[in-house]
């Protein structure tokens, strides 16, 4: 187990290098450059631009730029934004908490509602409740997130007045509930359907027949015997899903005007701030890798047949 964790952590190194390189290349391939962007439409002396590029190291060949960037990272230096002069790490640390909070809340809703609805539907497969849940989750899956977002804004904020249409203060959990509901809708639907299938399948398993033959109460048979088995595939999905939630957060942040990673990436992209984009994406990849590792370890706790060596 310890060795497994170490190996998984070591595997993060090539993933890290690959991810940064990929994003770096993509930024380079984009038209326009960050120095010229500073002047906008105004005319500018070419010599001045060249001098500034040399100063920033942007005149070096691509591999050299990338190497410099990696060397900086190793010393904990994420680089500096060209336009604002702010260190990239500052940009990340000020934008990340809002996104993480939104993702975490959406994840919580996904787990509680998704698994809950899935279990209810799975236990009553073919019944009215089951068909209702299938219908609602199908809606969530087929309607794009931004449409759901605007519908929620109109319905909950405008018509009912239960929430604000946009987020003023991303540190207030109560303001994040509406965006989190929107963000979680797709994952929630998938989790509910996956749980439903898994529960319905396990309900017919031989060990459930044994549980009944042992004279266990229905409640115990479901909570102890059925749930542990049914949740195994769901946990796997939830691990992967955290990445989807983080990526989806960027869209949701746009709808609800949350000052998070989404807006930071958007601004950085429009100014061609390569260091910022690479930094943010890398950061999110690392968060994702750590969370998936945790989920995989949880998987082994749920299913003793899985051995990590």
């Amino acid at each position: 187990m310890g060795r497994y964790v170490v190996r998984r952590l070591l595997q993060m190194i090539p993933v890290f290098i690959g991810a940064t390189l990929l994003v770096f290349l993509m930024m380079y391939a984009l038209p326009g450059d960050p120095v010229r962007a500073l002047w906008g439409e105004r005319s500018v002396d070419e010599a001045q631009i060249a001098a500034m590029k040399a100063d920033l190291g942007l005149d070096l060949p691509l591999w050299h730029q990338y190497l410099n960037y990696l060397l900086g990272l190793l010393q904990g230096d994420f680089g500096t934004q060209i336009a604002s002069g702010r260190p990239v790490i500052d940009v990340i640390t000020s934008a990340l908490p809002a996104t993480l909070r939104l993702t975490a809340l959406a994840f919580l809703i996904t787990v509680v509602l998704g698994v809950g609805l899935g279990v209810i539907a799975g236990l009553r497969r073919g019944g009215k409740t089951d068909r209702m849940i299938l219908f609602v989750t199908l809606l969530f899956i087929s309607v794009p997130v931004f449409v759901i977002g605007y519908l929620y804004q109109v319905f909950f904020a405008h018509n009912l007045g239960w929430a604000r249409p946009t987020v003023q203060d991303p540190t207030a959990w109560s303001q994040l509930i509406l965006p989190a509901m929107v963000l979680s809708s797709l994952s929630l639907a998938y989790v509910a359907r996956l749980t439903r299938t898994s529960v319905a399948e396990n309900k017919r398993a031989d060990y459930m027949r044994t549980a009944r033959a042992k004279g266990l109460t229905g409640r115990r048979a479901v909570s102890v015997h059925l749930m542990r088995n049914s949740l195994i595939p769901v946990v796997t999905f939830l691990g992967v899903d955290i990445g989807n939630l983080m990526a989806g957060a960027i869209v949701t942040e746009g709808i609800f005007n949350v000052n998070g990673i989404g807006s930071a990436v958007y601004r950085a992209l429009s100014y061609r701030e390569g260091a910022t984009v690479v930094g943010i994406v890398t950061f999110m990849i690392l968060v994702y890798l750590v969370v998936t590792l945790l989920v995989d370890l949880l998987y082994a706790v749920l299913d003793p047949r899985i051995r990590y060596a």
């Binding site: 031989d206 060990y207 044994t210 549980a211 102890v224 015997h225 088995n229 749920l302 299913d303």
Partner: peptide
């Protein structure tokens, strides 16, 4: 094998 619960000791 299938009649015993695989995830409980």
């Amino acid at each position: 094998l299938s009649s015993l619960n695989p995830v409980l000791s």
